[in-house]
Simulated scan of single mutants.
Amino acid sequence: MMILRALFCVGLGLSQPAMAQTSPDPATAALAASERLGRASEALGKAEGAQNRVKALTETITAFEDGLEAMRDGLRRAAVREQALAAELRARDEEIAQLLGVLQTMGNAPVPVLLMHPAGPVGTARAGMILSEVAPALDARALSLRDKVQELSMLRALQQSAANKLQEGLEGVQEARSALSAAMAERTNLPRRFTEDPVKTALLIASTETLSGFASGLSEIAVDEAPGSLPDISARKGALPLPVEGTILRRAGEADAAGIKRPGIVVATRPRALVRTPAAATVRYRGPLLDYGNVIILEPQSGILLVFAGLDVVYGQTGQVLPGNSPVGLMGGAGAEGDLLLAADSQDMGSERTQTLYIEVRQDNSPVDPLAWFKTDKDD
Rank of each mutant, 00 (worst) to 15 (best):
A162Y: 01
N164G: 14
L145N: 06
S161T: 13
S153M: 10
A127L: 02
R126V: 15
L145G: 06
K148H: 06
R156H: 09
A163N: 11
A135S: 13
D139I: 11
E133T: 05
R126F: 15
R146M: 11
R141L: 02
A142S: 15
V134Q: 08
D147V: 06
G128E: 07
A137G: 11
R141F: 03
A137P: 04
Q160M: 09
V149G: 09
G128F: 10
V149K: 10
A163G: 14
A127R: 02
Q160D: 09
Q159C: 07
G128S: 10
R146D: 13
M129F: 13
A157D: 13
G128D: 04
R126D: 13
L131N: 04
K148F: 02
G128L: 12
D139E: 14
N164F: 10
A157Q: 10
A137R: 15
M129I: 12
Q159D: 06
L138D: 02
A162S: 14
A157T: 09
G128Q: 11
L145T: 05
L155M: 02
L158C: 03
A163D: 09
A142H: 04
Q150W: 06
D139L: 14
A140R: 11
A127F: 01
Q150V: 11
A127M: 02
D147T: 10
R146H: 13
S144Y: 00
A140K: 08
M129P: 00
D147S: 12
Q150D: 10
E133W: 06
S161D: 14
N164C: 04
A163V: 02
V149T: 10
S161E: 15
V149Q: 13
S132H: 09
R126N: 12
A157K: 05
A142F: 04
Q150H: 07
A127S: 09
L152W: 00
A137I: 10
E151F: 05
M129Q: 13
A127N: 07
E133C: 03
S132F: 06
D147E: 15
Q159R: 15
L158N: 03
L152H: 05
V134E: 07
S161Y: 06
R156W: 02
Q150R: 10
E151D: 14
R156T: 06
A142N: 10
L155T: 02
A163P: 01
L131T: 04
Q160S: 12
D139S: 15
V134W: 04
L152V: 00
L155Q: 03
E133H: 05
M129S: 11
V134G: 04
Q159S: 11
A157F: 07
M129D: 12
L143N: 14
E133K: 06
A140G: 03
E151T: 14
V149E: 11
R146N: 12
A162R: 00
R146K: 12
A142D: 04
S161L: 12
S132C: 06
A162F: 02
S161G: 10
Q159F: 01
M129V: 14
A127I: 01
S132G: 08
S153A: 14
Q150C: 03
L138H: 01
L145M: 07
S144K: 03
L138K: 02
I130S: 04
Q160H: 09
